[in-house]
Simulated assay, not measured.
Amino acid sequence: MDAQATSITFRDATDADVDALVALVQSAYRGDDSRAGWTTEADILDGRRTDHEAVLQVIKAPASRLLTVERDGRVVACCQLEHRGDHAYFGMFAVTPALQGAGLGGTVLSEAERLARATWGVGEMRMTVISVRHDLIAWYERRGYRRTGRTEPFPYGDERFGVPRRDDLEFEVLAKPLA
């Protein structure tokens, strides 16, 4: 692992982090800033990726945690972990575009898996990914996630999730057994 990973710290988000986390998630997925990284959704969705209320809801939910990653005192990544019975849900994953492609995302994902096992004793991690995000799905597959064959509808008409630029969006469910 490169030096970038050695200087990062993990902690649970607090109310004071909300604005920084909203900005981080937005920069990783939407608008021109997101094009600096490879996780952009700017070609398939306009609008917001999340908002203040949604981030605060994840922080406050009793079966959830919003893992916040700092480097040199600055928030550079985050992910949601939610306990859902026999599995954990992984979501709201974002890495600042300037640091994408350097290994930080894999480090965060590994720590999230470790925490899900240690905290809740779950045997599986699940997530949903927009099905047309082939590069992102392949990235997760290289890390042990498998396509389940299940899909969930995209919430067309609910602008809290963005404004679609195409009419074929749906979420694909990926899963990985946690040893």
Rank of each mutant, 00 (worst) to 15 (best):
D2W: 14
A5E: 09
A5D: 11
S7V: 14
S7P: 04
I8K: 06
I8E: 07
T9C: 12
F10V: 07
F10R: 01
T14A: 11
T14I: 08
D15M: 14
D15Y: 14
V18Y: 02
D19Y: 05
D19S: 13
V22R: 07
V22K: 07
A23H: 05
A23R: 09
L24N: 08
L24C: 13
L24A: 11
V25T: 09
Q26Y: 13
S27A: 15
D33G: 15
S34W: 02
S34I: 01
A36N: 15
W38Y: 08
W38Q: 09
T40D: 03
A42N: 06
A42M: 08
D43F: 13
I44C: 01
D46E: 10
G47I: 00
T50E: 02
T50P: 07
H52Q: 15
E53K: 14
I59R: 02
I59N: 02
A61K: 11
P62D: 15
A63V: 07
S64Y: 01
R65W: 11
T68M: 06
V69F: 03
E70H: 03
R71P: 00
G73C: 07
R74N: 05
V75G: 04
A77Q: 07
C78N: 01
C79I: 01
Q80L: 15
E82K: 14
D86L: 13
M92I: 12
A94T: 00
V95Y: 01
V95K: 00
T96W: 02
P97L: 10
P97A: 08
A98T: 10
L99W: 08
Q100T: 07
G103Q: 05
G103Y: 08
G105W: 05
G106L: 04
G106S: 00
G106V: 02
T107N: 08
T107I: 12
V108N: 03
E111F: 08
E111N: 06
E111A: 04
E113F: 00
R117T: 12
R117N: 07
R117G: 13
R117E: 06
T119Q: 15
W120S: 03
M125W: 01
R126I: 06
M127T: 03
T128W: 05
V129E: 02
V129D: 05
V129T: 06
I130S: 02
S131I: 13
S131L: 12
R133V: 05
H134R: 12
D135F: 09
L136Y: 01
I137A: 06
W139R: 01
E141N: 12
E141T: 09
R142M: 04
R142N: 01
R142D: 00
R143D: 06
Y145E: 12
Y145F: 15
R147G: 06
R147S: 12
E152K: 14
P153T: 12
P153S: 14
P155C: 10
P155I: 09
G157D: 01
D158H: 14
D158P: 06
E159R: 10
E159N: 11
G162P: 03
G162L: 00
P164Y: 00
R166G: 05
D167G: 04
D167Q: 12
D168E: 10
L169G: 02
E170W: 15
E172C: 09
E172R: 09
V173R: 06
V173F: 09
L174Q: 03
A175V: 10
K176E: 02
K176A: 00
K176D: 10
A179K: 12
A179T: 11
